[in-house]
Simulated assay, not measured.
Amino acid sequence: MNMDLLSLLLLAVLLLSVVHGSVLGTKRMAAGLGSMVGRLLLRVLSILAALLLAGWVSPYARDWADRTLLDMPAGELPKWKGIGYSLLGFVSEFSLLRVVLLFALIYPVCLAALALLGRWRTPTEEPPKRKGKRRSGGTFMDRVGGAGLGLVAGVWRSLLLLALLFVIVSLLPKSPVSPYTEASPVYRAVSQHVFEPAAGDWISGKLPVLTASAAEELDGILQRKYEAIDRNIPADIAQAAVRIAGTGNEKEKAQKLYDWVGSRIRYDYDKVGAYENEGVWHEQTPRDTYDTRRGVCIDYARLYAVMARSSGLQVRVVTGLGSDGRGGYGSHAWNEVYLPDEQRWIELDPTWASGGDWFDRENFADTHIKQSVL
């Protein structure tokens, strides 16, 4: 069975943690685990304190930057002073950059202060140290207990790694690690059931949609070429779709294809930029999307439709408006699949699958406005 790189890495973290715990034994591993939790708690409290202080100081920092820029001397300035005033201009105009810089300055101070506060306590007499040879491993049960605690530590480390990757994928979808991360079923499961519900609107604020100017292009694709191109299903794509969908009822097959398309295809921000900045639309077929593993919403939807039809599902492509997570809407495309057992059409959005579960979602209509169906 093929396993993705991230799953292999997480498995290695778990195995190494178990072996390490077994070597240390129950008592020493418990002490190490407690120390690890304590350090993590210290950092979390420091981050929260630094964020609160950065938010409080931010308006004052902006006012100071504005006053300094107003007092900037006339004439040519030394290079280092010019760079300094340019940086102040960014600090004045961009609130996010200002908060990030303040956080970077305040966090080490908070961390040091809380660490000193934690060490300040009434001194107590330390118990005398036992003499003699120290056991390194202990009994079999001691090793088993240490291995169990090592597994707990490994799970914790794995969750921290997944949380870091979740932030990277959400903020930097074009980063080199994003496609490998999103291809992992472990990451998708943890993201959809843990991180995405916890993050709430933070993730929905980065929903990929096209600008309103792309609406005509989407409609043109469906009106001109959809029937001719997408009904001719390549044999290898059809075979892959049947294998991915497997056995089961229509909903189970639709879910498996949704997971596959949503995790294997990467959103093509370069294609969006070429259209918005240069007016150049790189039209592509489901064949192109399948081969390159890249596309925008209409490409996700068309590939899903081709693969779903190959698996015997009744599927439609829907175009309309999708929420951009910032109070506006942009041109978007998604799919509907008919479930004969339930006698209803369900809606699904494979483009947004990497950021949450958009398969037959109860509040789907809150973020999608249907305009045309084919």
Rank of each mutant, 00 (worst) to 15 (best):
G145L: 10
M141Q: 09
L161H: 03
P127W: 01
L15E: 07
V261I: 10
A74N: 04
A61P: 12
V100R: 04
K271D: 13
M141N: 09
L164K: 03
P197R: 01
S213M: 04
V296W: 10
P128S: 11
V169G: 00
L114I: 10
P286S: 05
R243S: 12
P350H: 07
D360R: 07
S263I: 10
A65E: 03
L45Q: 15
V169I: 06
D268E: 15
M72D: 06
R361N: 12
L96R: 05
S213D: 13
G246M: 13
V37D: 06
T139N: 11
L10N: 09
A163L: 15
W334A: 00
V99P: 05
S35K: 11
G325P: 02
L102W: 14
K131M: 06
L313E: 04
E276Y: 00
G205V: 15
L53K: 07
S354N: 05
A65Q: 02
S86Q: 08
H368Y: 05
L117F: 14
T68M: 12
N277E: 12
A245Y: 01
A274Y: 08
W345Q: 12
G328P: 10
V100S: 05
I369M: 10
A235R: 01
L102I: 07
G89V: 01
S191L: 02
T122V: 04
D230Y: 04
G279R: 12
L160A: 11
R43F: 09
L207D: 08
G205W: 08
W120V: 14
D236S: 09
L159R: 05
L14N: 10
L313A: 12
R309W: 03
G82P: 01
